[in-house]
């Protein structure tokens, strides 16, 4: 009840004409017109927002899964004494609050004093306005979010790697398999379930991000980096249209529910294989 109450509220408001300025009065039912308005919106186009959300989520998925798995493989192949301290260092970004991550990377991308531009100077490249154009801004946001999110993938993958039966790896070695073959044929298939969870966490960390984008670009320049979560915030708290904001919330909820169902279904299918 406690958990579902806010969502029930969002569902209810998504079919009303509720506005912030008339917050004390009972809103009227308007059916699905809020959803229609959101989908047919032109400032910015809904497709632009969905595309930004999709690219951002996909970039986060590929980046954090790739980096997390690579570092997971590298860390678990070290001696146990070295693993702990190294993991602790690599998990530093994961424990930092989203807003702090946002301000850190905003400083890194600053055109005047930023580290990103300072690193380009020795290469003979001029200053880049990282957060002022659509694709450089989305790429910059993806890098910042991968930095913040790959830690959980690393944690999941490295804990799964330690559970891979050593006898299988030794058997592979005896049969003459090289390191790459062992990784591809023995290690990765054995951590498939953990990989599924890590992929899901990466998708969620891409889809969920609000604070990082809000701090770094605020959805700008001119809505070019606005994701669904930011659209919801803008519609509700800047335009004062609670109904339309709630409609975006419901869309996000349906997508998340679909993701959860796919995850549980594939997890159960994997579990059945191992029984």
């Amino acid at each position: 009840m406690l958990v579902l109450l806010p969502y029930a509220g969002a569902l209810l408001f998504s079919v009303t004409d509720g506005r912030l300025i008339t917050i004390g009065t009972l809103p009227r039912l308007v059916g699905l017109s809020n959803f229609e308005k959101v989908v047919s919106s032109t400032g910015p186009e809904f497709g632009l927002v969905v595309a930004a959300s999709a690219v951002f989520t996909l970039g986060t998925l590929v980046g954090s899964l790739g980096l997390g798995t690579l570092l997971g493989l590298a860390v678990t192949s070290l001696r146990p004494k070295l693993r702990g301290p190294l993991l602790a260092l690599l998990l530093v970004p994961w424990i930092i609050a989203g807003v702090v991550v946002g301000y850190t990377w905003k400083l890194v991308y600053d055109p005047q004093i930023g580290l990103a531009n300072a690193m380009l100077v020795p290469l003979g490249v001029g200053r880049v306005a990282w957060l002022l154009e659509r694709w450089p801004a989305i790429a910059a946001l993806v890098v910042a979010n991968v930095w913040a999110a790959y830690g959980v993938v690393l944690l999941v993958v490295s804990s799964a790697l330690t559970n891979v039966p050593q006898s299988l790896i030794l058997a592979g070695q005896v049969d003459g398999a090289g390191t790459l073959t062992i990784i591809r044929r023995i290690v990765l298939p054995n951590i498939r379930r953990a990989f599924l969870l890590a992929a899901l966490v990466a998708v969620v960390s891409g889809l969920n991000v609000f604070d990082l984008i809000f701090v770094m670009t605020g959805g700008g320049p001119t809505y070019q980096t606005e994701t669904l979560a930011l659209t919801m915030y803008r519609l509700t708290f800047r335009r004062g249209d609670i109904g339309e904001g709630a409609a975006v919330t419901v869309m996000l909820f349906c997508f998340s529910l679909a993701l959860a169902i796919v995850y549980v279904w594939s997890w159960q299918r994997e579990a059945r294989k191992w029984r």
Binding site: Y233, T236, A246
Partner: peptide, 23 residues
């Protein structure tokens, strides 16, 4: 399953109903 799905939602998605409830 619903709890899992709720966990996937951005914290911002709870803003509207919680804001109204808090007011």
């Amino acid at each position: 399953l619903v709890f899992l799905a709720l966990n996937f939602l951005p914290a911002a998605a709870r803003l509207i109903p919680l804001f109204l409830l808090y007011v």
